[in-house]
């Protein structure tokens, strides 16, 4: 049973199983249960300067207008992410097989 502080992995550069650069780990999707809060997936994305600064990127309408050209973020399932080295997360699948986030 391992514990990890969020700040160790937040903002870390994520690569896929082939070593291709995917972006940074910027957000974690979770679900509130009765006793605990389980993690469903990690959001990995390329972020511009404005986005680095705003943690609500995905809901901000201003960002949507600016976002037209940027590639869409990846949604990596909890069982698709290897966090044994927290500073260098790796996905277990190549990027072509990873789900993309739709706005």
């Amino acid at each position: 049973m391992r514990e990890l502080e969020l700040r160790r992995i937040l903002g870390a550069k994520v690569v896929d199983s082939e070593g291709a650069h995917l972006g940074r780990l910027e957000e974690i999707e979770a679900e509130r249960g009765e006793e605990s809060c389980v993690i469903n997936s990690y959001i990995v994305e390329h972020r511009g300067l404005l986005d680095r600064v705003s943690t609500w990127a995905l809901t901000s309408s201003m960002r949507q207008r600016l976002l037209a050209k940027s590639p869409r973020p990846y949604r990596v399932g909890w069982n698709q992410m290897d966090l044994r080295d927290p500073h260098h997360p790796r996905t277990l699948l190549p990027k072509e097989l990873l789900e993309r986030v739709t706005e």
Binding site: M1, E3, C37, I39, N40
Partner: peptide, 19 residues
């Protein structure tokens, strides 16, 4: 200020503590 996540063997990770 900080959040602690727990990674149990072969089970879904979870958010366990606020710091």
């Amino acid at each position: 200020d900080g959040i602690v996540l727990e990674f149990p063997q072969d089970r879904q990770p979870r958010l366990v503590r606020l710091e």
